[in-house]
C-alpha cells in the first residue's frame, strides 16, 4: 500500500481546495482513505499529512480522537449496536449480547473471515427504530427481544451481498462525491461583501436621515 491511489488523491486535492485553510480537509480525507482501504493505514495518514500540510503525527493525533476513524483493519461490515438510553429501554443490551453470541466476538472484535467487526456505539439518532443496529452507518431495526431472528437475517443478507446496494463496504460514507470546487473565488466574495456592507451602511444612514430610526 502506498497512500492514496492516483484518482483518490486527485479527488482529495479537490476537497482540499474547498477550504480557506488546507488543514480543514484532514477529516474528510481520512474518510476518503477509509473508503479506499477500509481503514486508515499509516501510509494513507502520511499522504494526507502531505496533502494538508501538517506532520503525519498531527493526522494521527486528530484521527485518534474520532470514533469512526480506525487505525487498525476492521471487517467488511462494521456492526454498531446502540445501547444508549432509547435503545437500552427497548432491549439494546439484549441485542448486543445476541450479536456477540452470533458473531462469536466481543465488542471491538472482528470475525475470523473478516466479514464483521462488532462495536457498542453511542446514540446514532435512529431511536424510532430502537434498539437499532448500524451496518457501516446504515440503520436497521427495531431488533427487540423476541424478534432477534431478524437481526440474524440482516447479518446473512450482508454476508451474501443481498444488501450491497444499500450498504457499501466499510469506510464509504457517501457514494455521491462532490465534483466541483468553489465556484466563486474567495477574494471575489470578499470584495462583493465589502460592497454589500457599504451599501447597507448607506441604507441605514439614509433611513436615519428620514428619521424612522433605521427600521426600513
Amino acid at each position: 500500500m502506498a497512500g492514496l491511489d492516483k484518482d483518490v488523491a486527485a479527488h482529495a486535492r479537490r476537497i482540499v481546495s474547498l477550504y480557506p485553510e488546507k488543514r480543514s480537509a484532514l477529516i474528510p480525507l481520512c474518510h476518503l482513505a477509509q473508503a479506499q482501504d477500509g481503514w486508515l493505514t499509516p501510509e494513507a495518514m502520511e499522504h494526507i499529512a502531505e496533502l494538508v500540510g501538517v506532520d503525519p503525527a498531527e493526522v494521527a493525533g486528530t484521527a485518534s480522537f474520532y470514533d469512526m476513524l480506525h487505525d487498525k483493519p476492521v471487517g467488511r461490515y462494521l456492526i454498531g449496536i446502540c445501547t444508549n438510553i432509547a435503545c437500552l429501554l427497548e432491549g439494546g443490551l439484549e441485542l448486543l449480547q445476541h450479536a456477540e453470541e452470533r458473531l462469536g466476538v466481543a465488542p471491538g472484535g472482528t470475525t475470523e473471515d473478516g466479514m464483521f467487526t462488532l462495536e457498542e456505539v453511542e446514540c446514532v439518532g435512529a431511536c424510532d427504530r430502537a434498539p437499532c443496529a448500524a451496518a457501516n452507518w446504515r440503520y436497521f431495526g427495531p431488533f427487540r427481544p423476541g424478534s432477534l431472528e431478524s437481526f440474524d437475517e440482516l447479518l446473512a443478507n450482508l454476508a451474501s451481498g443481498a444488501l450491497d446496494e444499500e450498504v457499501p463496504t466499510h469506510g464509504v460514507l457517501s457514494r455521491t462525491r462532490r465534483q466541483r470546487g468553489l465556484e466563486v473565488p474567495l477574494d471575489q466574495v470578499r470584495s462583493q461583501r465589502v460592497a454589500e456592507d457599504a451599501a447597507r451602511r448607506r441604507r441605514q444612514e439614509a433611513s436615519a436621515d428620514q428619521g424612522d430610526g433605521g427600521k426600513s
Binding site: W137, T176, R178, L182
Partner: peptide
Amino acid sequence: TGASLAFIYIRGEFALGIERLEAALE
C-alpha cells in the same frame, strides 16, 4: 448575515444524510 462561505457540518454517522445532501447540493 453576509457570510463569505457556508459550511454544513454533518455528523459522520449520518452517512445516508451526507449522501443525499451532497446530491442535493449538486
